[in-house]
């Protein structure tokens, strides 16, 4: 009984996160300027990471959490590189 409740709330949470990813994707595609796109990308990867965590709760598979951790770290590096690029026009000085 309680198990069904958890399964359903995982489904609802995943729907909400998918909607959030769609909003972030819209901001990334629409712009209007480069910094808006980077902000959209940043939010998009955080939402994707949260989506993986909900999958992890549903299946109890450690691989999902490892993937979420890697996305968190690599997404940070990519956003920093893009922001640096906006500021100077080159990534490594």
């Amino acid at each position: 009984m309680m198990e069904l409740a958890v399964v359903w709330s995982v489904l609802i949470a995943q729907t909400m996160l998918a909607l959030a990813m769609a909003f972030a994707l819209y901001r990334m595609a629409r712009g209007p300027r480069a910094q808006d796109r980077i902000l959209g990308l940043d939010t998009l990867y955080i939402n994707a990471m949260l989506m993986l965590i909900t999958f992890g709760i549903r299946t109890a598979n450690t691989v999902y959490f490892e993937t979420a951790l890697i996305i968190a770290v690599i997404g940070f590096a990519s956003s920093i590189a893009l922001a640096k690029f906006l500021m100077r026009g080159e990534v490594i000085e």
Partner: peptide, 26 residues
């Protein structure tokens, strides 16, 4: 049951907060 309820609540509130954050982006 108590843990399941708490997990459900935390998960739903967390997902809703994320949704509102992305809505703000929009």
């Amino acid at each position: 049951p108590w843990a399941a309820l708490l997990v459900c609540g935390l998960m739903l509130i967390g997902a809703a907060t994320t949704l509102i954050g992305s809505l703000g982006l929009l």
